[in-house]
């Protein structure tokens, strides 16, 4: 990486009104730190308690998705430990709209299921999402990791917008999953 590109990176982040950006391994400690930093930043820049809570909530779910998901890959493939555990998180604010962007590796075999799930969620309106949430809450089983299958539904509810996503092919085994959550 050339020295000039440091400035370019800075400018790109400035252009996107980045509040916080992180690339690396998502651990419980990192999660706590990011949430703490973002909470104090939000207290400074956001007047609406409602918006503050929504952004914080989306952030919690996104981070916990990254944490749980990457842990899964680590167990299944020790060789790609560092490669797969590393994730990207970016939070930006542009004229009152917040965006939470995440990027992480995902096993190709899991991409299709997630894609179907996201498309299903995106096809629903506010009230339908609430009904879906309630039925998964009541009927869904908790996984061993303590995930309830509600994360993406909750993110969509709090966002109030369609979830923008993409799966970029990396190699035979992995895709890179990109998610952009907009919060008004």
């Amino acid at each position: 990486m050339s020295l000039k590109s440091i400035y370019e990176l800075y400018q790109a982040m400035e252009r996107d009104h980045t509040m916080l950006s992180f690339k690396g391994v998502v651990t419980p400690d990192l999660l706590s730190s990011v949430l703490q930093i973002m909470e104090s930043k939000l207290n400074h820049v956001e007047k609406s308690n409602k918006t503050k809570k929504k952004v914080y909530n989306v952030l919690v779910e996104c981070l916990q998705n990254l944490y749980h998901h990457n842990e899964n890959i680590q167990e299944e493939d020790g060789i790609n430990f560092l490669f797969s555990k590393s994730a990207l998180l970016m939070i930006s604010k542009n004229e009152g709209n917040y965006e939470v962007k995440t990027g992480n590796y995902i096993l190709k075999e899991n991409s299709e299921d997630l894609k179907v799930k996201l498309d299903d969620i995106n096809a629903l309106n506010k009230e339908e999402l609430r009904v879906l949430y309630k039925s998964v809450l009541n009927e869904g089983e908790m996984s061993e990791k303590g995930t309830a299958g509600l994360g993406m539904i909750d993110i969509a509810r709090k966002s109030g917008n369609k979830l923008e996503y993409s799966f970029l092919p990396v190699d035979k085994k992995y895709d890179f999953f990109c998610l952009n959550v907009k919060i008004n």
């Binding site: 919690v60 995930t147 539904i153």
Partner: peptide
């Protein structure tokens, strides 16, 4: 004040 989705199941 708020809870995550993993907690929502436990609360239920």
């Amino acid at each position: 004040e708020y809870f995550n989705t993993s907690s929502s199941k436990c609360i239920l």
